[in-house]
Amino acid sequence: MGGYGDVQMLDENGLRMDGRNPADLRPISIETGVVPVADGSASIRWGTNYAIAAVYGPMECHPRKIQRQDRAVLDVRYNMAPFSTTDRMRPGFNRRSREVSKVTADALESVVLLEMYPRCKVRVEIEILCAEAGTRCVGLTAASVALAHAGIPMTDMVVSVASGKIHDVVVCDLNKEEDNYGEADLPMGILPNSGELVFLQMDGDLSPDEFKQAWDYNMEAATAIHEIMVEALKGGDS
């Protein structure tokens, strides 16, 4: 982060490289039922990001050692396809995907009513097919739509979105260049109906004021994204 001060990411009118205002999101579209064999599935296009999430279960929990007698366990796997980035991603689990899987599982665990399915497992598979920036947010958002699509009971859906800082200006929903050459990144997982927070990370530094601004952008964006999620669910399968 930082150290690339010569990259011009804002023009004289304050517009960003792709023509967005600081508060604007990239275009988002969500479809449900894209994996017919899964119990629930969703695909999401978020700018040039493209991800698919599939949910299987509730099913018998294997391996038995991770089984819980009083609730189900969420088995989340986040994976980036080898062709999803310009440098080939080595297939399989790595440190980063392990971390993203964990934070995604933690965020989803706080909304899914796991205690309704003791000793079971709910499998959530997130596959990033094309990555631009903010894939953890894209994956988490897709996963919560897929869970709702599978009929897994949950108190709310998680909407995830990131804001960040470029050239000392706080902007919403960073793209690739802004993420790479910007100064900070603040992904958040928000419950849109209650405004609660279930996931928060910060990369880089933000002053209290900038943090507040990024927070507000995320909250505002979450409302808009939630609308798209609900619409996708109510519109039936593609």
């Binding site: 967005r20 205002n21 604007d24 999101l25 988002i28 808009a224 798209i228």
Partner: peptide, 20 residues
């Protein structure tokens, strides 16, 4: 990338009665 490619908060939901 031109204006059409940009989604703003107010124009994101195109279809108001998607669920019938």
């Amino acid at each position: 990338m031109k204006g059409r490619w940009v989604a703003r908060l107010y124009n994101m939901s195109v279809n108001d009665d998607a669920g019938g």
